[in-house]
């Protein structure tokens, strides 16, 4: 390792690192958050397998059962979906709130559940609701 005394708090080269991270953030922002277009559906995957497609126009509450006995209630309303009452202790999916745009997703790591909003062209394996 280099001498401690040689490492400054902030070096000019740090700007390069920050600019690089900003650029990566900007690129992935434009790739992920596409504008609203086709009608959206919430596509659910549990442990990598498709576990149902919930079109947003069919409002309602649906129970999802993931790995490790984790259950959650997926609430679908006209313009988005959110998770209510997850039995997992982290509650990260609940705290994410409502997702409303294509490309956004709700993730439950302990239950291996992922819910993403996709356009109609996504090619549904199963339509529920």
């Amino acid at each position: 390792m280099k001498k401690l005394s040689k490492t400054p708090l902030f070096a000019a080269a740090d700007i390069f690192i920050i600019a690089l991270v900003l650029a990566a953030a900007a690129i992935s922002f434009f790739i992920s958050v596409k504008g609203a277009g086709a009608p959206l559906s919430a596509c659910v995957k549990i442990n990598g397998r498709d576990a149902g497609v919930y079109p947003l126009e069919h409002a309602g509450e649906y129970k999802l059962v993931g790995e490790n006995g984790i259950e959650m209630t997926l609430v679908v309303d006209g313009d988005g979906v959110f998770v209510k009452d997850s039995s997992c202790r982290d509650k990260i999916c609940e705290k994410t709130g409502k997702i409303t745009r294509e490309g956004q997703s709700l993730i439950c790591m302990p239950g291996r559940i992922s819910i993403a909003l996709e356009g109609e062209s996504g090619g549904a394996d199963a339509v529920v609701g």
């Binding site: 992935s28 997703s105 790591m109």
Partner: peptide, 23 residues
């Protein structure tokens, strides 16, 4: 790691936000 564990790389839809917060 989250994407691989779940077999779903859609988790990267949040990448930009995590990058901004890492700054």
């Amino acid at each position: 790691a989250a994407g691989l564990l779940m077999g779903d790389m859609r988790v990267f839809s949040f990448w930009w936000l995590y990058l901004l917060l890492s700054i």
